[in-house]
């Protein structure tokens, strides 16, 4: 079993990073400037809402959000006190 993420997990991570979430057509767009001053932008199709995301998608999101890898992003999600 690999590490799985749902769209809600991604939303939670983005909120903790201080990104704003908006609807844009068929997509959810999460964007803003993280605490380190980097502009981040992730967009997810609405059809992904409520289900697991594919590993390929999760690994791209981790990269776009500035995490080392998927495991690092999972650790950030689980460890509420952790800063990136």
């Amino acid at each position: 079993m690999g590490v799985t993420f749902t769209f809600n997990d991604i939303k939670k991570i983005c909120q903790r990073l201080g990104l704003a979430i908006r609807e844009s057509g068929s997509n959810h767009v999460m964007e803003g400037t993280d605490p380190e001053g980097n502009f981040l932008r992730v967009s997810v199709h609405w059809k992904a809402d409520g289900r697991n995301l594919a590993k390929g998608t999760v690994s791209q999101i981790a990269k776009d959000l500035g995490f080392k890898d998927v495991a690092d992003m999972r650790d950030y999600l689980q460890n509420k006190k952790r800063r990136r």
């Binding site: 079993m1 690999g2 799985t4 697991n52 995301l53 594919a54 590993k55 390929g56 998608t57």
Partner: peptide, 11 residues
């Protein structure tokens, strides 16, 4: 990329 576990195609 095919994700066997989640039965999803990612592009």
């Amino acid at each position: 990329e095919w994700d066997e576990e989640n039965k999803l195609w990612s592009v």
